[in-house]
Design a protein around this nucleic acid. Structure first.
Lengths: 206, 206
DNA sequence: ACTTATTTTAATCATTTGTTTAAAATATTT
DNA sequence: AAATATTTTAAACAAATGATTAAAATAAGT
């Protein structure tokens, strides 16, 4: 089960508010989500939001931090595993992201927007650059096993190929587009295809 | 010069408002941009916004439509050219997008958000699916010249590899990250690299 | 059972925000 | 130059919004 799904959803007022806030913030963003919307969605009195979380801002920060945490944990665990190969890691990254985003498709756009508003909030990049994965890649380049290039390109390609479809998802699902099911199938296909594409990228000696 | 830069910027009040609105809407989104912010940025009286554009909503629609138009025009012209090869088109798409986004890096996130809020607004997808480019790809697949796959994957990969870095841009530019100049250089590198990667993808017969 | 602490509620406040109004300033027409 | 149309301004309005308050309801502690 995806880590995010493990977030406890007991019946407590605090959790009801956080669940409602998570849903609405992800759907509509910070500004467009009104405290009264959250209170209604959670089925609680408006004042309880401030009672438990002091302010809309603080509540938002908690939600963002939790979501970021999910993203991070997935990356860190895979990317610092010293027992797996480069290709193993690519497969694991792609599969885990696609599974997670299938469950929470609004997350990428939400996180990108959050970072844009407050860039200090997160340093996903560092997770990559300081990782064992990067060490492996640099060694492979030195050994001539993969084409020499700025390693940031590799990260951008893995993440871009995986996440971008979810960022662009609303574009596909409009009238005349594809259905949610078809989109899901396409993503499952890509789960298998992307690692192959990355592999041929790494090998392509221009 | 990029088409968007051609938008006339005479000193008229109407244009001053539109310029300010374009800048702020792109930077902060619809809800977070206040009419008073626009008026200040444009250096005009608040009431003039409603005098010239009736409402914030109408002004926003105009901005979105104009931006979409830019995106569309680039795509359509390239994708329906019957004289260029598949590889030519990939190169042209990538180069044009990167040049445009280098000038207007906030555009992708802005457009993605706009589509999410009102998915009817645009059908970029159709531009691709009904295009001469798609015809070429389907023929190439039939002829066994490129690996058989859902053509939507090809589109997703071209656009994803090109646009995603700009969506993720704020992540790179924070403290401890890379500078704007370094990001620009990286994008120029990718302008040359992406077509090669796409090529090796199309050839990869798994 | 009584007291105290915690949680919930309804009402209200102070700002903010999009929009309107009516008058003033400026430009255009006759 | 006078009359008319257009543009700009300052002020105000009404609704929405985040937050607070004081009282009521409920739970916990002794």
């Amino acid at each position: 089960m995806s880590p995010i799904a493990k977030i406890k959803t007991d019946g407590s007022t605090e959790e009801k508010i956080k669940d409602a806030a998570r849903k609405l913030f992800m759907q509509k963003g910070f500004e467009a989500t009104k405290t009264r919307d959250i209170a209604n969605e959670a089925g609680i009195n408006l004042a309880l939001l401030n009672y438990y979380f002091r302010s809309k801002e603080k509540l938002f920060e908690i939600i963002v931090k939790e979501n970021m945490g999910q993203f991070m944990e997935i990356i860190s665990n895979i990317v610092n595993n010293e027992k797996t190969t480069i290709q193993d890691k690519v497969e694991a990254l792609v599969a885990n992201y696609i599974d997670m985003l299938t469950q929470f498709p609004d997350m990428p756009l939400f996180i990108m927007n959050s970072i844009k508003v407050d860039p200090e909030r997160i340093k996903i990049r560092q997770r990559f650059s300081g990782s064992y994965f990067m060490k492996q890649i640099n060694e492979a380049i030195k050994a001539g096993k993969i084409a020499p290039m700025n390693p940031m390109n590799i990260m951008l390609n893995i993440v871009g190929l995986t996440i971008f479809p979810f960022v662009a998802r609303p574009m596909f699902l409009n009238k005349g587009g594809i259905t949610i099911e078809e989109f899901g199938t396409l993503m499952q296909e890509r789960k298998k295809l992307i690692p192959g594409w990355i592999k041929s990228m790494l090998e392509a000696k221009k």
